[in-house]
Design a binder for these strands. Structure first.
Lengths: 110, 110
DNA sequence: GTATGATGCCTACCTTTTCTAGGTATCGCG
DNA sequence: CGCGATACCTAGAAAAGGTAGGCATCATAC
């Protein structure tokens, strides 16, 4: 019943992924943790959402991937923002701001 | 090419409709105009989105509808918020605020 | 007078995105 | 040895919006 972790709205996941990667190279599993932690546990990205999204995003050229071994000795697929991806992040942040503003305006109405 | 009206994010339409109706009884076509106007032309709800949404929302009991003639002499289907609908609006506004906050937190990160 | 655009309603179908619910494998710890 | 965390993936369902049509009425312009 009590659900303290809201589902994402469609369209926000890409932005979150790109933002997480803008803080540095990261693998998929780590993105989920980083997003959850940065949002104070409010945003919980499901694996079944993330991996398909990463695939889409990679196809679009916004991130590049490579397999590597990290300090713990485990293999993981590391993603990095491309230049295009960084631009896309800016675009999506601007759209987000626009939308938040627009909705705020509607909500101000009396 | 230049697209100055962004698509809505999924999940925001119900809130916008409920909000528009919280300002007073209204028919479908009028909601589109009211939302567009209140948002300074930023939010454009398509008819193909609105009418199915109204149907869903009515099924959930958040609005009630009746046919009537308005001052211009034309017939239209007027929708009104129910008590449940008003509660739902509060809930959705709270979720929205939560989401905006959570995303803001992620974006603050350095 | 008739064409056109705005008002007003509706539907069928498509697309996109996310979630659910599985599957696989490795690693560390009790 | 089992179990939870780490790490990847996929298939299928569900939900929401958009596109693109259709219909009818009304006012205005030509």
């Amino acid at each position: 019943m009590a659900k303290d972790k809201a589902d994402l709205l469609q369209g926000t996941l890409d932005m979150l992924i790109l933002k997480a990667l803008s803080l540095g190279e990261l693998h998929g599993y780590g993105m989920i943790q980083r997003i959850r932690q940065l949002s104070d546990e409010m945003l919980n990205v499901e694996q079944g959402s993330l991996y398909p999204a990463l695939y889409r995003i990679e196809q679009k050229g916004w991130v590049s991937a490579r397999w590597d071994v990290h300090e713990t000795g485990r293999e993981a697929k590391f993603y990095k923002l491309t230049r295009t991806g960084r631009k896309q992040l800016e675009t999506e942040e601007a759209s987000w701001d626009r939308l938040v503003l627009a909705i705020a305006k509607v909500r101000q109405a009396t």
